[in-house]
C-alpha cells in the first residue's frame, strides 16, 4: 500500500493562511490503513487546525468529508456540487489523491495535508517499512524476495558494499537492516547462494521513472472507440 504521514500542523496552518472556509477530504484506502488520512485522522486534524488558527485570531472553518478512494474519479465526483462554498480543499489523500482532485476540480485550490512516503507495509504495530520503488521490472525472483533497489541504500545489484556493519546493519544507519546481508541469508536458507555469484548486468532503468512518466494502457479493458469501427 501507499504509506503517508501528515505534514506538521504549523506547515498546514501556513498553507491555510487567508482561507476562511475549507473542506478536509480523507481517503478510505491506503492512507486510512496507515492512520494518516482516514475518517478519524480527518476529524483529529480538522480539530487541531481549527484550534491552531483560532489561537492566531483567524479561525478557519473546516468541514470534513471522506471518500472511499481519492485516486478514482467516480469516487470523488460526488464532491463536486458542494465545492463552490469553499476557498480550498485540504486533501488527506496520497499524492495520487491530491492530483486526482486537482485534475477533476480545476477551479478549486487543492492543498496536500500529507507527505506521501513510499510503497510498503506494516512490519510491527505502528511501524511501516518501504518495500517497492516501482522500478517497472521486478527482480525479486533472483534476490530471494528482498528488493535491493528499494532496501539497499545504494541500490546495489551484485552483493553488499564494504560498509555492512556487524550483525548486518547498513552503513547509512544502524536502524536500517542491510538488504544484501538479508538476501545472502535468505538465499542460503533456500540453498541458492550460487545464483548470487552471477554478475548481474546494469539494470535497464527505462521501465522506471527514468524512462519518463509512466502509463499503462490495457487494450483488453478499453471501451471500444467508435472511431475504430469506421471504415
Amino acid at each position: 500500500m501507499i504509506v503517508a504521514e501528515q505534514k506538521p500542523v504549523a506547515t498546514l496552518k501556513e498553507m491555510l493562511r487567508g482561507k476562511r472556509k475549507i473542506l478536509a477530504v480523507g481517503c478510505g484506502t491506503c492512507v486510512a490503513v496507515c492512520f494518516a488520512g482516514g475518517k478519524r485522522e480527518v476529524g483529529i486534524l480538522a480539530a487541531a487546525l481549527r484550534m491552531a488558527t483560532e489561537l492566531d485570531g483567524a479561525r478557519v472553518e473546516i468541514d470534513e468529508a471522506i471518500v472511499q478512494r481519492q485516486c478514482e474519479y467516480e469516487y470523488i465526483d460526488p464532491l463536486k456540487d458542494k465545492l463552490n462554498q469553499y476557498d480550498a480543499v485540504l486533501s488527506l489523500g496520497c499524492g495520487v489523491g491530491v492530483q486526482t482532485l486537482a485534475d477533476r476540480f480545476q477551479t478549486t485550490r487543492i492543498l496536500p495535508a500529507l507527505n506521501t512516503k513510499f510503497m510498503g507495509g506494516p512490519t510491527e504495530q505502528g511501524v511501516w517499512e518501504e518495500r517497492c520503488q516501482g522500478c517497472g521490472n521486478c527482480l525479486l525472483d533472483v534476490t530471494g524476495g528482498i528488493c535491493p533497489i528499494t532496501r539497499c541504500s545504494k541500490q546495489l545489484m551484485n552483493g553488499p558494499c564494504g560498509g555492512t556493519d556487524t550483525g548486518g546493519r547498513c552503513e547509512v544507519d544502524k536502524e536500517i537492516p542491510c538488504a544484501w546481508y538479508m538476501i545472502w541469508e535468505r538465499m542460503e536458507k533456500l540453498g541458492l547462494q550460487d545464483e548470487l555469484m552471477e554478475v548481474r548486468p546494469p539494470k535497464d532503468w527505462s521501465t522506471s521513472r527514468d524512462g519518463g512518466v509512466r502509463k499503462i494502457v490495457r487494450m483488453d479493458l478499453r471501451k471500444p472507440d467508435p472511431k475504430d469501427f469506421q471504415e
Binding site: 545504494k154 541500490q155 546495489l156 545489484m157 551484485n158 552483493g159 558494499c161 554478475v199 548481474r200 548486468p201 546494469p202 539494470k203 532503468w205
Partner: peptide, 14 residues
C-alpha cells in the same frame, strides 16, 4: 540525489 545507475561490479565489467 545519489545516482547508483550501475554498481561497482557492473562498473568493473563496463
Amino acid at each position: 540525489k545519489n545516482v547508483h545507475d550501475i554498481d561497482s561490479m557492473q562498473l568493473i565489467r563496463m
